[in-house]
Simulated assay, not measured.
Amino acid sequence: MTAPLNPVVEKFVTALNEHDRDRFYGLLTEDATMSDDGVERNLAQWTDSEVFDSNGRMRIEDVVDGGTELVADYTNTRWGSMRTNWRFMVRDDKIFRFETGQA
């Protein structure tokens, strides 16, 4: 059985899947950072390209590390479907960093 998600991470996944930009960015600190496959990315440019402009969706397969790490089937119109790892760093009910990459 998959462990429960951290509440902030759960809200992030829901906002991403519902393409709710305001709610999505509201869960991030103003100085939030991210990486994709180990490469630092501009968070706004990456999320526009990989999530909002390409109908990104995440289907969670497994959750570990207290609900802050997960494996998901990630699908968008740019790349299709791929198995991905996600790791979130949360402080004061906000995500200050997330890292993703192919699993």
Rank of each mutant, 00 (worst) to 15 (best):
M1N: 11
M1Q: 09
P4R: 14
L5W: 13
N6S: 14
P7Y: 15
V9H: 13
K11T: 11
K11V: 04
F12S: 14
F12H: 15
L16W: 14
E18H: 12
E18Y: 07
D20G: 12
D20V: 07
R21F: 08
R21I: 13
D22A: 11
L28A: 05
T29V: 10
E30H: 15
D31V: 09
A32R: 01
M34A: 12
S35Y: 06
D36C: 08
D36Y: 12
D36I: 03
D37A: 10
V39E: 10
R41K: 14
N42S: 06
L43Y: 03
A44I: 04
Q45D: 13
Q45V: 00
W46Q: 04
W46H: 06
D48F: 00
V51N: 00
D53P: 02
D53L: 02
S54R: 04
M58Q: 02
E61R: 04
D62F: 11
D62G: 00
V63W: 00
V63C: 01
G66M: 04
G66L: 07
L70A: 10
V71S: 09
A72Q: 04
A72M: 06
D73A: 14
Y74Q: 06
Y74L: 07
T75L: 09
T75M: 09
T77N: 15
R78S: 13
W79T: 15
G80C: 09
S81P: 00
S81R: 09
R83W: 02
T84A: 08
N85M: 09
W86I: 02
W86V: 00
R87F: 03
M89D: 14
M89H: 11
M89N: 10
M89A: 14
V90T: 07
D92W: 05
D92F: 05
D92E: 13
K94T: 05
I95M: 05
F96W: 10
R97I: 04
R97W: 07
E99K: 09
E99A: 11
E99M: 08
T100F: 00
G101Y: 03
Q102N: 14
A103V: 12
A103C: 13
